[in-house]
Design a protein around this nucleic acid. Structure first.
Lengths: 256, 256
DNA sequence: CGTGCGCGTCCCGCTGACCGGTACGGTGAT
DNA sequence: ATCACCGTACCGGTCAGCGGGACGCGCACG
């Protein structure tokens, strides 16, 4: 299950439930829609949403509510993602400049990868990923990398739960996936060939923590089948990821 | 006043007060520090912070609390900033690639500009700006652009309040600033010469809304005095901003 | 080796903030 | 005209939230 319940018996719980009712691609939600998604009584939703507006977490428009700029500010202060992003940006830029394909930076959160950054040009392959968005680990190059370097128990937990099929090429057999993970550890890179979206291929490499055994994040390059050959970028992606790894080790700000 | 009070008589108010107690550059705050900054009773802060942790807005570390990845995710869903960012990214990339200097995208929020994106390479001029961070409008190129294209009343409101001095070059005379704003409207670009930080110069252009009279955002290029001459990039910055303007007009998603 | 300070945590009785069923006015489709 | 659905407002009951206070800890002092 992606989003665990969140306590509806507390004000705060209701508030975050409302906030999380927004998905990456809703611009604005009406009160009625909010009620539908959250299951809160209408009067309650109305009041809490109002409170969220006064606290500048929501904006009120004539069409309904939407997540406010204040929330954006707050989110950008999240230390881990932010410092990661700041350290990574130069490497991501390099990578983009040399490939001119879409470049991702992602971290793992449970069964999903969360994209911390996505950069691309006008001609970018349109992929389902979005900055701040999620994708299942098992069908993305970044996800496979992160899974390969994850604690064995987390890895097993994911391998033993059903693997959602996204395209005809999605790997849904745990055994096959496990073999790929072993290969990832060996090569230091992971590939993805139309497993999350048809027409898209991807290559990713890990950003390793100090010891070199755990992955903080992963960097990937994505492109359309045809002009894009993932194998061609092994060295580049690996170099970027390693560069970031050593930089991140020097400025230790991971903890936890 | 930058941060208005936020109601401390409501759970939600306390919660956001705690969240906003984090500034861009604190990684982690202890409970005691939180109490100091928020003015909440210790027991209360402790409880609310705990609730925030259960709701995944804060992380608990052995050193204290920090803003969680869940908050980052949420913030990235803020519709305005996000769609702006996605539309803008290709233009920002172009700009970076042609200048190899730090590129900013910012919007105005009251007396401040909030940076929605900041991209740069390894050799970037280190500026005080940060993605998700704030700077006063009057001492930044982006700010001056946004101010020049703001509603007259908002403009007057800012011009008639004290202008904080950041460097010896910061413009603190309202009259002088006002004359610059007129020039901005005429040229379609604004300059900043060591007014926010010594050794830094900057040039910015507006991303205009459909009518062409209001600015949604602004794009800037920043570099160090010496190798960087703002005038050299007038055409480039203006082109990027105009490109984004017309793209944003086509996909209308501004509203409000 | 006390002693004191600042820290995080827990307890517990009081109370007002929160709750949500209910009702009302507006708006658009049928 | 009728109805369905929306956003908003009211209001009395009650329990979640409140915060003063106490406790145990680790650390830096004299």
């Amino acid at each position: 299950m992606p989003h665990q319940p969140a306590d509806l018996d507390t004000v705060l719980g209701k508030a975050v439930t409302i906030l999380r009712a927004f998905t990456v691609d809703d611009q604005v939600l009406s009160l009625a829609e909010l009620v539908r998604r959250t299951g809160l009584p209408k009067a309650t939703a109305h009041r809490v949403a109002g409170d969220l507006v006064t606290n500048r977490l929501l904006d009120r428009t004539n069409l309904g509510y939407r997540l406010s700029g204040g929330l954006f500010e707050l989110g950008m202060r999240a230390s881990v993602e932010r410092s990661l992003l700041e350290l990574a940006m130069p490497f991501l830029q390099d990578l983009y400049e040399r490939t001119h394909e879409t470049v991702h930076l992602g971290v793992r959160e449970g069964h999903d990868v969360v994209y911390v950054a996505k950069i691309g040009g006008h001609r970018q392959a349109k992929s389902p990923s979005r900055a701040g968005g999620r994708m299942p680990v098992h069908c993305t190059a970044i996800g496979k990398v992160l899974l390969a370097y994850a604690d064995p128990e987390a890895q097993q937990e994911i391998l033993s739960s059903p693997l959602e099929r996204r395209t005809p090429h999605t790997i849904v057999a745990p055994g096959l996936l496990e073999r790929q993970l072993a290969a990832v550890l060996e090569n230091g890179v992971a590939f993805e060939r139309e497993e999350s979206a048809v027409g898209l291929q991807c290559i990713a490499a890990p950003v390793l923590a100090e010891g070199g055994d755990k992955a903080l994040a992963a960097i990937s390059v994505t492109g359309p089948v045809g002009r894009f050959r993932p194998e061609a970028h092994v060295t580049l992606v690996r170099a970027a990821a390693q560069g970031l790894s050593s930089l991140a080790s020097r400025r230790r700000s991971l903890s936890n």
